[in-house]
Simulated scan of single mutants.
Amino acid sequence: MTVFDKTWNTLNLEVIDHTLVVTLDRVGRMNAISPEMLGELAQVWDRFEREESLRVAVVTGAGSKAFCAGADVSSVADKSRARTGVFERENSFTPLQAKVTKPTICAVNGVCAGGGLHFVADTDFTIAADSATFVDPHVSVGQVSAIETMVLARRIPHQAVMRMMLLGRAEKLSAQRALELGMVTEVMPANRLRERALELAAVIASNSPDAIAASRACIWDALERPLHDAIRLAWPVLRAHGDNHPDAQEGPKAFFEKRPANWTVE
């Protein structure tokens, strides 16, 4: 048994070698985010972080029509829900918000709308099917677009995010346009998307987990700081790993001996 052996109502989870595949699974609602899904995702990221054998996670959507249609409109309009303006109480459903320290990949297999953009913004990188589309309809339905678009604006051109936000549902980006903007890193036929995501995850899992963790932390942290400050903070991390971590010696040794590296898992 693993920590994922339980019944999930809105997700489908698979463990493939060192990779966790998290599939948003509400096909009848275009995999829209419900309050129950929020809770289940928070549990998944907590367990993924704690499971030592897992090194990478892939997030995708069930079916071929939609990756995630955003927040379920029935829950958005429900004023009876116990909501709070405290961010930390309600936002731990993506890897970034849950402070996950392991690599994550988003594989967009169809429509990615509104809140679905959280996963594009909050994973390390995104790949997409050639049939995928991206749209932020918040303002068209009287809602505020803020969290996911704020993160996106630090990763892709600011004007592109502003245009998508201001035009709402009238601005639908194709997978190719998303690639041009850097929102996704690769576009492929829909029937190859899952296979490709797993290929990339396997390559990542073959690298030093501790070197990846330190590298990820430095690069994500740099988004929040002036470049000079980020470099000054990253330097001692780089040096401490290079001078003291076993992987820093094992990597070159394995390279010259033409064998797989035996990484330390701490």
Rank of each mutant, 00 (worst) to 15 (best):
G110D: 03
I204A: 14
A66H: 09
S131I: 14
L13M: 09
T94S: 11
S215R: 09
L198F: 05
W45F: 14
A190P: 00
F119K: 01
T84P: 10
S75P: 00
R29P: 00
V184T: 14
G70N: 07
G116D: 03
Q159F: 06
I33N: 01
E199N: 12
A69G: 05
S53F: 03
V108R: 01
L11T: 09
A222K: 04
F67C: 04
I16F: 00
C68K: 04
A98S: 13
A98V: 09
F255L: 14
A146E: 10
D210L: 10
T7F: 13
A42F: 02
S80G: 09
N191A: 15
K65T: 14
D46T: 11
D243C: 04
L181I: 09
G142F: 02
A32K: 05
L193R: 05
D229V: 12
L54Q: 05
R177A: 15
K99V: 10
I147T: 11
S208K: 07
K65G: 11
F256P: 02
I156T: 06
N91T: 04
E36Y: 00
A261R: 02
K65N: 11
I219Q: 07
E195K: 09
K172E: 13
H228T: 11
V59M: 13
A153C: 10
E186A: 01
A205R: 08
D5S: 13
A42T: 13
V237M: 03
N244S: 13
V44C: 02
D136M: 15
L173W: 14
G168N: 10
A211V: 00
G142E: 05
K79S: 15
S74T: 12
